[in-house]
């Protein structure tokens, strides 16, 4: 149906972006498809030690899922920062990804988690790493007729943790001026054995910063390692000046947030290890 429609189409899950675009006249879709009622799209399903999140699961439901919170707290806190309580009742992680905003709160956490997106296209289902979906502001690599049906968050080793931080001028109801997500795993000795660091709102798409991860792998996140992490993040930024922030601000604060997120992720990894 979506592929056959010659005009503009929109897939509606929570509607918190699509409705605004329609009202502002930014989008005048000839076809809006509400996919919430398709089987499985509103479920959080355990799978291979991880969780498969249906594309129509709203943020509030993810926040209420104890198992998901325990396994990927950083991903959940990113999703929970999308909009108000009201928006949380509607907005979905998949919609946040497909909207294509470089400042999307859900996406850095998903990229750091190396989540996998399942797409139902005209030729059937396929899986795709989340980092490959965003293509630029308001654009994705999804083809016409593609529907994201779920996002898979994998199992993780013991002593793993993740965290997401964003900067906004207000405490709530705001768009990230800059954001950072860190996912890491500690060895038995407390040193970082694996890490992924992602930044939001500092480039046309969310960035996966390998140099930042390398700066902390093998370290115990001492001050020098955290400083190197922050420097690597700032160096990777390619932001713009706009109404929400400046190049200098985003560049500097990206490093600060990555450093703080890494510390939180480490503390969570320790707790996860203790719990295990």
């Amino acid at each position: 149906m979506l592929a056959a429609e010659p005009g503009v189409t929109r897939i509606l899950t929570g509607g918190t972006d699509v409705m605004v675009q329609m009202r502002a006249g930014l989008a005048a879709p000839a076809l809006v498809v509400d996919v919430k009622h398709l089987t499985g799209l509103r479920a959080i399903t355990p799978e291979a030690g991880g969780y498969r999140i249906g594309a129509a699961v709203p943020g509030a439901v993810m926040g209420e899922h104890a198992g998901l919170r325990a396994l990927w707290p950083g991903v959940v806190e990113g999703v929970e920062l999308i909009g108000s309580t009201q928006v949380q009742g509607r907005a979905t992680m998949a919609g946040n990804l497909c909207n294509g905003s470089p400042a999307a709160d859900a996406v850095p956490g998903l990229v750091a988690a190396d989540a996998v997106v399942r797409i139902m296209g005209v030729d059937g289902a396929r899986d795709c790493p989340v980092i490959d979906i965003p293509a630029g502001p308001g654009r994705t690599t999804l083809a016409k007729g593609d529907i994201v049906t779920s996002i898979f968050l994998p199992a993780r080793p013991a002593r793993s943790g993740d965290a997401y931080l964003r900067f906004t001028p207000r405490s709530e109801m705001d768009i990230a001026v800059v954001s950072a997500a860190v996912s890491l795993t500690l060895g038995a000795d407390g040193a970082v054995t694996a890490a992924r660091v992602a930044l939001g709102a500092v480039a046309p798409t969310v960035l996966l910063v390998d140099e930042a991860a390398q700066a902390i792998i093998g370290t115990r996140l001492d001050d020098a390692a955290l400083a190197a992490l922050a420097a690597a993040c700032s160096a990777a930024c390619r932001p713009i000046d706009d109404k929400r922030g400046t190049v200098a601000f985003r560049t500097q604060v990206a490093g600060v947030l990555a450093r703080r997120a890494a510390s939180i992720a480490r503390d969570r990894a320790h707790s996860a290890g203790d719990a295990a």
């Binding site: 405490s171 109801m173 768009i175 109404k243």
Partner: peptide, 16 residues
């Protein structure tokens, strides 16, 4: 005007 809405014209919210 670049911020003609309550998203980017930031009046204080309760949690501020």
């Amino acid at each position: 005007l670049q911020n003609p809405g309550f998203l980017d014209y930031r009046i204080p919210v309760a949690s501020d």
